[in-house]
Design a protein around this nucleic acid. Structure first.
Lengths: 244, 244
DNA sequence: CGTACGTTTGAAACTGCTCAATGCCTGTGG
DNA sequence: CCACAGGCATTGAGCAGTTTCAAACGTACG
């Protein structure tokens, strides 16, 4: 069985190599794990709370709904990501979280997190770094939707997801497993599901990427990266400047 | 002459009423003011730094450029807003800041900010609240571009700006001064400048808003709010949950 | 075996974009 | 004080990219 900290520690190690002690503090910070099945709601918009979650297994999405029913997906979370950290530290969450697949989450109480932070400041920094990356991704998402064409957008998104997954040891330069539906893709990229379908076909026919049956397969990573103008600088941060 | 903290304190008071002492700490945190003329660059993407700024007068925009030259404006900052706080706390900035109008900024050094935080924790909370609002605005911006039509988007943006300005005492329910060009509007909303022009005309002809000669004038605030599905919940936060 | 969900395709309509041209205002230099 | 340039706003015409509606198909699951 997988340790409850496996994914998170892998993720945080991309920033600094945590010591045994720090990893230990991390694992004590995480409460009991809970299973939530696909489609289940994890945090509802407006719900306040002194708790956040660490995603240990499966995929989650965060999104907002418009009054008329439209949905905008803000971001996806993959194993090792935090859910609702901001709402824990600051206030009620301003968007909802839903499990995309069956999911395993570990709860983190505000209190436990604070004490972990004081006993392992480097751990705190690495978590802040992780939050900081999330924000950079939202900004990049904004750029993506605002200023790139449907095909570029889609390419960019698939590349970004690939890079994120590789950082937690899932998939490689050839592809990765991806449980998202075309509807979810559409609501992420600000397009209609029908159009996403056509765009995916184009990408396939041009031998750039194939996304079918839950698998993304890169056929020509170089050309795809050019098409998308993908730069992974915003993911691969140098890490906190660390004032002190 | 305007005190250097006038705008910021007005802004932060929307969250908690700061005491004399806290206001004093705030003003000591802010270094010497600097004037930057319209079009001047304040922070360049990728530039690291142990300093942030407080905008005292004028308008600033934060944006990202794509390789091919397209620009996506992330957000505008108005008096009382912070510039580059995140890059101060965490790492190099991932986007650029440019003065929209002539601008007066006060520099804040990381060190001064930290000591201000330790002597006035409520001040720290209110600043975190302010950052938190900024993030909520980026998310709302994403929803706006991703899932609303050109006319709804534009209406929503003009309303949001109005709400923000009112919170610092500029403008009222009838309108506000706005120095943005149609090009800037376009790069904010993911549209072409030409199309923004037509959208503004529609809004004017339908007697909803008039944006001309640097002034936004609400003609029918109610209908406009309905059109845009504008809810100001994400601006008017209850404030930090405040773990402790 | 039927239902539900996701994918795929076609056709028609619409939204927003590009290109091209014009007008207006402001600041600058002659 | 006028001429001119530069920046911004405005308008038209035609086109490309996306959406909507409708329908068919495949597959998984109860």
């Amino acid at each position: 069985m997988v340790s409850s900290t496996a994914a998170v520690s892998k993720r945080l190690k991309n920033y600094i190599d945590l010591t045994e002690q720090e990893l230990d503090t991390l694992s004590r910070m995480i409460g009991p794990s809970r299973m939530i099945s696909a489609g289940g709601e994890i945090v509802h918009e407006g719900q306040s709370g002194h708790r956040a979650f660490i995603l240990q297994d499966g995929w989650v999405m965060s999104y907002k709904l418009l009054p008329e029913g439209a949905r905008q997906i803000i971001d996806f979370q993959v194993p090792g990501d935090f859910l609702g950290l901001r709402s824990l530290l600051l206030r009620t969450s301003d968007h909802s979280f839903e499990a995309v697949t069956d999911v395993l989450v570990g709860e983190v109480k505000a209190q436990d997190m604070l004490s972990a932070f004081s006993s392992a400041p480097r751990l705190a920094m690495s978590i802040l770094w992780s939050v900081s990356c999330d924000e950079a991704m939202v900004v990049e998402h904004l750029v993506n939707i605002g200023r790139r064409s449907a095909i570029e957008r889609t390419a960019h998104f698939l590349l970004e997801l690939g890079a994120r997954l590789r950082s937690i040891g899932v998939g490689d330069a050839h592809g990765y497993p991806c449980p998202l539906s075309q509807y979810q893709l559409a609501d992420t990229l600000g397009l209609s599901a029908i159009h996403i379908n056509r765009v995916l076909r184009q990408l396939r026919e041009q031998n750039l990427v194939t996304f079918q049956k839950g698998v993304v397969q890169f056929n020509d990573l170089k050309k795809l990266t050019e098409l998308a103008e993908f730069e992974m600088g915003y993911l691969d941060q140098v890490g906190p400047v660390l004032v002190s």
